[in-house]
Simulated scan of single mutants.
Amino acid sequence: MTESILEPAGVGPVAGGHLRASDSDREQVSTVLSTAYAEGRLTREEHDERLDALLAAKTFDDLVGLTRDLVGPPLPTAAPAVAGPKLDTVAASEETDRMVAVFSGTERKGTWRVRRRIESYALFGGIDLDMREATFESPVTEISGFWCFGGLDIKVPAGVEVRDQTMGIFGGSDVKNVGEPQPGAPVLVIKGMALFGGVSVKGPRPARRWGANAALGRRADHRHHH
Score class of each variant (00 low, 15 high):
Ser173Pro: 11
Val162Tyr: 03
Gly151Gln: 02
Asp164Phe: 12
Lys155Ile: 05
Phe170Pro: 07
Gln182Val: 10
Arg163Lys: 10
Thr166Arg: 02
Pro183His: 10
Ile169Gln: 02
Gly179Glu: 00
Leu152Met: 07
Gly150Ile: 02
Gly172Asp: 04
Gln165Tyr: 07
Gly168Leu: 13
Asp153Thr: 14
Gly151Leu: 08
Glu161Ser: 13
Gly171Met: 13
Gly172Arg: 11
Val178Ala: 09
Asp164Asn: 03
Pro157Ser: 00
Asp153Leu: 05
Val162Thr: 04
Ser173Gly: 08
Lys155Cys: 04
Pro157Met: 00
Val178Asn: 03
Gln165Ile: 01
Gly172Glu: 05
Ala158Pro: 08
Gly171Tyr: 12
Gly171Thr: 15
Lys176Met: 02
Gly172Val: 11
Val162Gln: 13
Val160Trp: 05
Gly168Arg: 00
Val178Thr: 15
Gln182Ser: 15
Gly179Ala: 06
Asp174Lys: 11
Glu180Pro: 11
Lys155Ser: 00
Gly159Arg: 00
Gly179Lys: 00
Asp153Glu: 14
Gly151Ser: 14
Pro157Ala: 06
Ile154Gln: 02
Glu161Gly: 04
Gly172Lys: 07
Glu180Phe: 04
Glu161Asn: 13
Asn177Val: 01
Glu180Ala: 15
Asp164Thr: 11
Asn177Gln: 08
Phe170Glu: 03
Gln165Pro: 01
Val162Asp: 10
Ile169Met: 14
Gly168Met: 01
Lys155Thr: 02
Asn177Tyr: 10
Gln182Ile: 01
Lys176Asp: 09
Pro181Tyr: 13
Pro183Ser: 09
Gly172Met: 08
Gln182Trp: 06
Gly171Cys: 13
Lys155Tyr: 03
Lys176Thr: 06
Pro183Asp: 14
Gln165Gly: 15
Pro181Arg: 08
Ile154Glu: 00
Gly171Glu: 11
Asn177Arg: 13
Asp153Phe: 05
Arg163Tyr: 06
Gly168Pro: 12
Thr166Asn: 01
Gln165Asn: 15
Pro157Glu: 10
Thr166His: 08
Gly168Asn: 11
Met167Trp: 12
Ile154Cys: 03
Pro183Leu: 12
Pro183Tyr: 07
Gly179His: 09
Val178Cys: 15
Gly150Lys: 10
Gly168His: 04
Pro183Thr: 08
Gly151His: 05
Val156Asp: 01
Gly159His: 03
Thr166Asp: 07
Asp174Cys: 11
Leu152Ser: 07
Gly172His: 09
Leu152Lys: 10
Gln182Asp: 06
Met167Tyr: 10
Ser173Thr: 08
Val175Leu: 09
Gly159Lys: 00
Asp164Ile: 05
Gly151Tyr: 01
Gly168Val: 13
Asp174Ser: 15
Ser173Gln: 10
Val160Ile: 08
Val178Leu: 01
Asp153His: 13
Lys155Gly: 08
Gly159Ile: 00
Val175Met: 05
Val175Trp: 12
Glu180Lys: 12
Arg163Thr: 13
Glu180Asn: 06
Gly179Leu: 03
Gly151Arg: 10
Pro157Gly: 04
Val160Tyr: 01
Gly168Thr: 14
Glu180Arg: 04
Asn177Cys: 02
Ala158Ile: 05
Gly172Phe: 09
Arg163Asn: 03
Ala158Glu: 08
Asp174Arg: 06
Gly172Pro: 12
Lys155Asn: 05
Glu180Trp: 01
Gly168Asp: 09
Val178Trp: 02
Arg163Val: 09
Gly151Phe: 04
Ala158Asp: 06
Val162Asn: 05
Ala158Phe: 02
